[in-house]
Amino acid sequence: MINKTVKDADEAIRDLADGMTIMFGGFGLCGIPENCISALVKKGVKNLTCISNNAGVDDFGIGLMLHQRQVKKMISSYVGENAEFERQLLSGELEVELIPQGTLATRCLAAGYGMPAIYTPAGVGTEVAEGKEVRNFNGKDYLMEMAFDADFALVKAWKGDTAGNLIFRSTSRNFNPIMAMAGKITIAEVEELVEPGELNPDHIHTPGIYVHRIFQGKNYQKRIEQRTVRNR
């Protein structure tokens, strides 16, 4: 097996540079690559284009990078939980492209499947359709949406082996496996890094061929955005 292991997040992002396009797995704060984000904040790279379903919260996740003005452009579907984001957006400091969540997901999938574009009905007749090719199939209109082209994909998995095979846990799977497939260089941080042979091949969500670097993550906060409970 090819060993993809690197020491830590700093080593993993060593050649991630200003102006690049970066994908971040996660939905809200669930399943975000916490270690890689911390390393990016420390490294201080700037003018990044970030593809992520959300933009974190004010003091965690991509919100930390927004505070340091590291982000030139966000490509997201929902950004409602972040006041600093909304401020930078409304003042024009930050460029934002809001796209439907399914379009975001499927543009990742297309990149990972080697397809240049997809057709989706999402956004037909809305401002999302502006400037895009519309094509009619079987009496219904669809928008052509291009596959993403990202320099790096940063994902978080539950378990992984040194060959880069990944298993995700519960709904922290979300965008992680499809972004893992879509990056020119994919970095996976995992809660538990094991040797090849310790994961059942039938249980692998992301085959190691898509993962270029993997490391054992540490100090996970796994913050909860909306803690909702019921009484016993």
């Binding site: 997201s76 579907s77 929902y78 950004v79 409602g80 909304e86 957006l89 409304l90 934002v96 809001l98 796209i99 439907p100 969540q101 399914g102 379009t103 989706t120 999402a122 956004g123 809305t126 999302v128």
Partner: peptide
């Protein structure tokens, strides 16, 4: 501006 999330899909 909060975004459309999955609503458009």
């Amino acid at each position: 501006v909060k975004g459309m999330g999955g609503a458009m899909d």
